[in-house]
Design a protein around this nucleic acid. Structure first.
Lengths: 302, 302
DNA sequence: TCCGCCGCTGCATTTTTTGCAGCGGGCTGG
DNA sequence: CCAGCCCGCTGCAAAAAATGCAGCGGCGGA
C-alpha cells in the first residue's frame, strides 16, 4: 500500500527510536525519511517527534497520532483480508503472545488444526509474560494473547477464561504418583523444583504455603517450564505445572501429573484475550473462536 | 492531508457516481483521478469499481473498502481535533441530522449555548427523516442524529431517549385551549391539520384512532411542521406536534399547546444517537453530552 | 443511427521524491 | 577538555511519479 508509506515510516521511526536507524530497516536513505516526517509535521501543524541528541521521541501530539496510525494500519490489514475473503482466497497472519505453558502442546496442535483448513494463513507465536503480552496487544504486534492469571485488565478484553488447577509433575515411579490427588503437605517430604517467582504457578503456591503454614524449599528453580519437567524425570523429584502444558508428555508415559487438592491450592485461571475495542482480522478472529471452543471443553469459567 | 488524497478521491468518486464528474468537483483532470483509482485497484489486487456505461459503481470489495475509507477520514478528523485540543485551540465541526421538530427552537438554542463557550466550533444541521438520518451516520456525513420514534436500530447507538407526549396546538382563543389536557374524542368536533403519513406524530395518531375507533379527517396535510403551526393560528384549527418543537412560539402567546391524554395517544420517543462503534470527534462528543444533559431534564426514558 | 458521456491510454510536461555530500550540535569516553 | 561519533537537517542534482492534453473505442438514449 503505497499511500500508507508515510505513516508506516513514522511507525518504523517510533519503533527504531531514531530516523537514521529506521531508514536502515526500511532500506531508504535517512534524507528521504527525514523529509517525509518534516512534511507530515507540516501538514499536521505540530511536531510529531521531539528531537534529542541520540534520536527522536514522540511528542504529546505524536503519541495521539501513532495510536491512530497503528489503528489505521491494522484496520487496513483487516480490510485486505476481508476483501481477500470474498475473492475466495483465505489468507492472513495471526500473531499470538502467550506464556510458556501453551508452547509445548496446546498451540502447536491448535495451529496445525487451523492450518489444515486454511494453509495460506501464517502464524507468529511469541513467548511473553503477562505484562509484555498486554503490551504486545496494545502496539498491535500481537492479535491474541493467552496468559495465566493476568493482573491488569486495561486494554485487555477477555474472550474466554479457563480454570487450570495446579498439577504435581513427576516420574511414573515416584511415590506420589500412587495417589489420585495430592495434598500440599504430601510434598514436603520430597525434593521439589519450582518456577521462579514471577510465574503464576509459583505465585499460587507461595500464597497456599503461607496459608497452610507449609514450607516447600525448592532444590531447583528455573524460568523454563520444559527444563523443570525434564529435570523432574531426570532427578526423580517433583515439580508443579498447569495441565494445558502437560498433555503431550504425560500421554507418552514419560511422566505423570496429579492434581493438587483444591483445598490447598486454588486453581489458576488462563485467559484468552484481545485488545479491547479492536476488530480483529478475519483470520485472527476465526482462530480465536477455534481456540475458544477448544478451551471451552476444559474447565471454562463463565 | 496529502497522504490521504487517494482515498479522499475515491470517496468523491463514490459520491459523484462517475470519475469525470468527481474530477470536476475535485478540480483535477479525469486522467489523474482515473489513474489514481487504477493504481489503488492495482495495490488492492481487486477492482474497487464496476465500470458501467454511464459511470462507475462500487464492487463488493469496494463496498468494504469505502467503509474503511470513511472511517479513516473521520478518524483523522478526530485525531486532528484531539491534537488541536492539547495545543489549546478548541476547533472542530459537528454535523447533525435531525427531524423538523428540533429546528425551530431546541437546536438553535443548544448550538448557541455551545458556541458561546467554543466559538471556533462550526455546525452543520441537516433535516433528515429517520431512515436518511441513520444513513447519514453510516456514511459519516453526520456525527449525531436526533430522530423521533426510529424503527431500525442497526448501526444506531442511542445516547439518550426522551418521552415526547403528543400535544394539541391551536390559537389561544380556541375552545380546546380551556382544557388542561385534551382527549382525542374532544378533537373530532373541530377541523384539524395533520402531518403527512411518514411522520412519527401522524403514525402515533393513526394507531390511536384505530384503537379508539375515532376518525379525524384532516382538512390540511403538510410535511412541514412550521406551516402546520402557523396555519393552525391563521385558520383557527388544531394540529398536533411534540413539545420540543413548541417552546418558542407558545411562550410568546401566539399559540398554545395542550397535551393529549396519555390514555388515548401514547407518548412518542425522541432518540439522540450516534453511529455504533464510532469514536466521535471531541467537539461532537462534547456537544452530544451537552444535549444529553439538556434532554435529561425533560422526560428521560431510562 | 447519431450524439453524448463514459473510462481508458500514449506522450510530453510538471511536480514530487530521493540520494549524495556536507553542516552544526550534543553526548561520551579517553 | 577534546576528539570522535551519531544525530537531525539542508542545497542541489538526478530519478521517479503524477498530471494534463488529445484522442480512442464502447455503450445507452434520443
Amino acid at each position: 500500500m503505497r499511500y500508507l508509506a508515510s505513516i508506516r515510516y513514522i511507525d518504523a521511526v517510533v519503533k527504531a527510536g531514531s530516523i537514521r536507524a529506521a531508514a536502515d530497516t526500511l532500506a531508504i536513505t535517512s534524507t528521504a525519511l527525514n523529509r517525509r516526517i518534516l512534511a507530515m509535521e507540516e501538514e499536521l501543524g505540530v511536531p510529531i517527534f521531539e528531537r534529542l541528541a541520540h534520536g527522536v521521541r514522540l511528542s504529546a501530539a505524536g503519541e495521539i497520532y501513532i495510536h491512530h496510525i497503528r489503528n489505521q494500519l491494522s484496520d487496513m490489514e483487516r480490510v485486505r483480508s476481508q476483501i481477500a475473503d470474498l475473492s475466495g482466497v483465505r489468507r492472513g497472519h495471526v500473531s499470538i503472545a502467550c506464556s510458556q505453558a501453551l508452547l509445548p502442546y496446546f498451540l502447536p496442535e491448535q495451529i496445525a488444526l487451523y492450518r489444515k483448513e486454511h494453509p495460506n494463513v501464517t502464524f507468529g507465536v511469541h513467548l511473553r509474560d503477562r505484562e509484555a503480552a498486554e503490551h504486545a496487544l496494545v502496539d498491535h504486534s500481537a492479535d491474541l494473547a493467552i496468559v495465566f492469571e493476568p493482573v491488569r485488565l486495561t486494554d485487555f478484553m477477555t474472550l474466554i477464561r479457563v480454570r487450570q488447577p495446579v498439577h504435581v509433575v513427576m516420574a511414573p515411579d515416584h511415590p506420589l504418583a500412587a495417589k489420585a490427588t495430592v495434598r500440599l503437605s504430601d510434598c514436603v517430604d520430597y525434593p521439589i523444583a519450582l518456577p521462579t517467582t514471577p510465574y503464576g504457578v509459583r505465585h499460587l503456591l507461595d500464597i497456599a504455603m503461607r496459608i497452610a503454614g507449609v514450607r516447600l524449599d525448592p532444590v531447583i528453580q528455573s524460568d523454563n517450564f520444559e527444563f523443570l519437567r525434564n529435570h523432574a524425570v531426570a532427578e526423580n523429584i517433583v515439580t508443579f505445572q498447569i495441565p494445558i502444558g502437560l498433555s503431550d508428555e504425560t500421554s507418552t508415559g514419560r511422566m505423570v501429573s496429579r492434581p493438587l487438592d483444591g483445598r490447598d491450592v486454588p486453581a489458576g485461571i488462563l485467559y484468552l484475550g484481545q485488545l479491547k475495542g479492536r476488530t480483529l482480522p478475519v483470520a485472527a478472529a476465526r482462530f480465536a473462536s477455534q481456540l475458544t471452543s477448544a478451551l471451552a471443553g476444559q474447565f471454562e469459567v463463565s
